[in-house]
Design a binder for these strands. Sequence first.
DNA 1: AGCACGCCGACT
DNA 2: GTCGGCGTGCTC
Length: 804
Amino acid sequence: MIAEVIVDVPAQQTDRPFDYRVPEKWSGMIQEGMRVTVPFGPRKLLGFVVKLKESSEFKSLKNISGLLDMEPALNEELLELGHWLADETMCFKISAFQAMLPAAMKAKYEKQIRLTRGMVVSDLLPELQPLFQKTGTMKWDDAQNNELLPLVKKEMDRGALELSIKVSNKGNVKKEKFIKPLLDKEGLITQLGEISKTAKNQRCIIEYFLENPIESPLSKVLKDTGLSGYSVIKPLVNKGILHVQERESYRDHYEQHEFQADAVLPLTEEQRGAMGPIERAVEEKRNETFLLYGVTGSGKTEIYLQSIKRIVDEGKEAIVLVPEISLTPMMVTRFKRRFGNLVAVLHSGLSTGEKYDEWRKIQRGEVKVVVGARSAVFAPFKNIGLIIIDEEHEGSYKQEEMPRYHARDVALKRASYHHCPVILGSATPSLETFARAKRDVYTLLTLKSRVNQRALPEVSIVDMREEMRGGNRSMFSELLFEKLKERVEKGEQSVLMLNRRGHSSFVMCRNCGLVVTCPNCDVSMTFHRVQSQMKCHYCGLEEGVPNVCPDCGSDHIRYFGTGTQKVEEELGKLMPHARVIRMDVDTTSRKGAHEALLKRFEDGQADILLGTQMIAKGLDFPKVTLVGVLSADTMLHLPDFRSSERTFQLLTQVSGRAGRHELPGEVVIQTYTPEHYSIQLASEQDYEGFFMREMFLRKQNDYPPYYYIALLTVSHEDVLKAMDTADKITTYIKRHVSPSTVVFGPSASPMSRINNRYRYQCLLKYKREPNLAVILKKLNETYGRNAAQSGLQLSIDVNPFIMM
DNA sequence: AGCACGCCGACT
DNA sequence: GTCGGCGTGCTC
C-alpha cells in the first residue's frame, strides 16, 4: 500500500503530497488523516496521510517510518475541510492541518545519537557505555553539554553510532497513578499489626484506605494524608497490600470550581417565537443560517442553551463560538451549569496540555458541547447538530495569521456538511450578515425587547469642543464628572471606557513638533507611566523617555493624548475617595488577572471600572448605572472602511452595559465629532438606521457587502524592492482580471513600515472574479517561491477584516 | 524550510 | 593547491 503524505515543511515547493510505502505491519492500521513520521531527504519529519492508494508513479519510494496516531487526527470531514481551507485562504496544506489541531499535536523534533543497528553497548568506548545502557540512545544536547561530542564523533566515524531525529508530539498525555487496596478491612487491620512501628508513613496510608476503601488518584491520597512522593506507597504495593494502575487523565482547568445544575429559564413570547424556526430546522436537519438579531439583554444566550439542549437530547453535538474576551467565567459557568461535564471549553487561558485534553474529550465523544473562541470551530465532532456564533460581528473571528480564515465561513462550510443549522447572534450584526438576512439568504429572527423589560439606557452626547471652549481642559466633561461623582456618593458603580492603553498616546516636542516614533515601524510610540518607558504597540520595542527633543534639543517635551493610566491618575486627583480598577492589556496580561479584576469589581470592591475595549463586551454587573465613553472618536478616523461600523458597534455594546437590572442606566459619550452618524445613531440605539446609512456609503464606494475585496501586502526591508514588486503585482493583476473588477494600488500601506519592513499594498474589489483563485495562486507561486532568499514577503488576505 | 551540491575568491 | 562563500535545486 502507498500513502500520500503532506510533510511538515510550510513552503511553496513542498506544498504537495509525497508518496511513501506503508510497511506491511501497518497496512491494516494506517488510515487517512493520521499523522506519521517520514524520511524526507536527509531529515525525518511529521506528515499527514491524505490518501491511501495501491500504486505510485514514483519509482524509488521510501517507507513510512512511524505512526503518531492510533486514530486519525483528522477525520474524513476535517481532512476535506483542510484542503478547502488551504484553497480558500491561499495557505499551505500543512498550515491548514496544523491550524485545525491543538498545538500539542505539532511535532517536536529532537536530535539524538543512537547505536547503529547490529552494534551493542559493549562495542562502544567505555566512557560512553553507561549512557547508552538503558535505551541505546542519548540526546544530542546532553552529549554537547557534557563535552562528549568528540567521543561521539569518533564512534560515528567508526560507524558504531549514528545521528537520528526523534519526532514526537509537542504535548503529552497526562498519566496518573490510581491506588486501591487489594485487601478487605480485616486484611488491612491484620497488615497494620504486622508493619513495624517505625514505618509511620506506611501505617498512615493503610489507615487512610481503611477509611476510604475505594480507588483514588495518587495525588488525592498524598494530599489527604499530607505525605509526599510515591516512595511511601511503593513498599505497600510490593507487599501486595495496595494495587497501582497508571491511567490517562485529563488536566481540568475548572477543577477548583463547582458548577451547580441550574434550571431552564422560561422563555418570553418573543424568545419562543425565535426558537420555533430553529427547532424546526434542527428537526428537519436543514442547513439553514439564522441571524438572531436581538438587543443586549434580550436573552440570546438562553435561546442558545435551549436549542443546544434539544440537540444533545438527540445524541448530537453543538459548537458554540464566543469572542475570546467574552469567554468569561460567567459565560463558562452558564454552560457548565446547564450541561455539566458534557461541555468542553477551549480558550487562550488554557495551557497547551489543557487544550489538548479538551480536544481529546471532544474527539472521543465524551462531551457533546464545545464552547470556545475562534479555533473551536474545528472541534472534531462527528455528528454536529448546531453551530452557534455569538457576537457574530466581532473581529476576533478572523484569524490574522497564516490560515487567514474567518470562523463564520468555516462554520457555514461545516454546517453544510452536517446538514445542520447555524445561528449567528448579535445586537449589532456585521453589514455583510444583516444584508444577507434582508435578502433572505439568512433567516432573520428578531428580539426587540429586553427580557426583564428594562428600558434601554438614556444616552447623552457631550461635545468636547464646547467643553474646551468653555475652559474645561480636563478629560472629563462637566456632565460626566457630575454623574460620576453622584454614583460614587450613592454607592453605585460606573464603567469608563477608553480604547487606548498606556499613559499618553504620544510624546511630542512643542518646539519643533517632533513626535517620538518607533525606529522600526514609523508609528508613534506610546508612553507608559509605570515603567516610565516608551513602547511601540506594533513591534514591542521599549525605549526610555527622552528628556530633550532628539531632533532640536529643546526641553519642551510634552505628553499628548490620553491613556488609561493617565485617566486613572486624574481620577485619583479629582476624586480621591473613588476606588478605581484599571483594566487593559497591561494589567491583565498575567494569567487569571482578567478574572480577578472583574471579580473584585463584581464584589463591589471598587466604584469605577476603567478600561479599554475589553470591558465593552458581555459583562453584566447589576450595580452599574453609568457608562462613560471618554473619547468616542479614537477609532473613527482610522483609514479603514469599517471604522464607522466598528465605532457604532462598540458604542452600542458599551451602552448596553448600563442598567441591565433594577437600577436604570445612563450613558455619557464624549466626542469631538458629535454630528457623526455612527455616534448619533449609536446613542439612539438605532441599528437599522445605521445599517441604511452605512450601506448607502458602502454602495457608493464599492465596498462590502456590495463588493468582495482582497488585499495583497508586499513587504521588504528595502523600500524600492517593496515598491517595485507591488507595482509588478498590481500590473499583473490589472492585466488578468475581468473588466468589472477594480484594482487599486500600488500604494503605501496605512502602516507603512513595521519591524523595519516597508509595506506596499494592492487592493482588489470584485463582484465575481472567476480568475481570482488562479491569479492569486500564480502570484503566490512566483513571489512566495524565493521568499527566504530575496527577503520579500507577500501576504494575501481574501476578505480582510482589518485593512491596515 | 533544511540540506547538499557546486562553482569562484583568499589563504595554509 | 584547499577552505569556504552562498546561489540553485531537491526532497517520495
